[in-house]
Nucleic acid binder design. Sequence first.
DNA 1: CTGTAATCCTGCGAGC
DNA 2: TGCTCGCAGGATTACA
Length: 277
Amino acid sequence: MPELPEVETVVRSLRPKLVGKWIKTVRRGRHQLRKPWLAQWTRQVSDTKIVSVERRGKWILLKLSQEGSHLVVHLGMTGRLLVCNSIEQVLSHTHLVFPLAGGDEELRYVDPRRFGSVRLCQVVDNHRFPEELQLGIEPFGKYSTQLEERFLASSRSLKAILLDQSVMAGVGNIYADEALYRARLNPEWRGNSLTSKQVRKLVSAVQQVLQRAIDAHGSTILSFYYGDGEAGGFQNEFKVYGRKDLPCYHCGTPIQRTKLGGRSTHWCPECQNQTNR
DNA sequence: CTGTAATCCTGCGAGC
DNA sequence: TGCTCGCAGGATTACA
């Protein structure tokens, strides 16, 4: 479910509610999440303060007052982090509850499909969690020739490169399709078939679409909500995603939907097929 | 190096 | 109304 804009939206709504709060303890449900639980997990989180709430790619990082310690959350497809009053109804598939000191509030992790993970990690070699070692650059950073070279050196499809978190962190299936459309590039083209100019155009399209989606508080298709249950708004601005057989807004050609990189891929066969330049 | 398919899960909508 | 089927915003693994 959540890609970078949705994760950023969640982080921004959590930050004012969590920073400075103390976690009293942890209660967990019966089910395992994706990653294995670490030993002594509960004891280490209890009575620590949340110092900051950050995002890296699609990961959420709660920095704790205990030196080097982070709660690291990945929402998978259906994960949600909620700050609720303890008297509020507990949603089904609530797997973790962190009661907070100084009130009746608690942080809850809800995840029907359980593709997400919540772990406690220590900083090692400047990396706050193990996967960060393999994570690519943040899309909003300064334009990197290293990034450009990753594209130009790869014989993979543009779609596959965009979905690869070790290249650019945070892009998922929706925003990959939307960025490719906006850059007028075919998802099937190979990275090494592009010019430098086209790579810059694509990176710029990724930045634009992510920024606009953040401004709209993400996209809600089935079940993405943030804050007290508000839906995102960017689904109303999709140009290709979910528009199979509907006319392209630019040329009227029906939008195509196929499988690429293992994922459903939407594009305009007219607008995204100009091979020259 | 590529790509593809299966896997982890539940829920929803389409179609019958 | 109720059933089955296919599909879903993620990521990893095995295999060709």
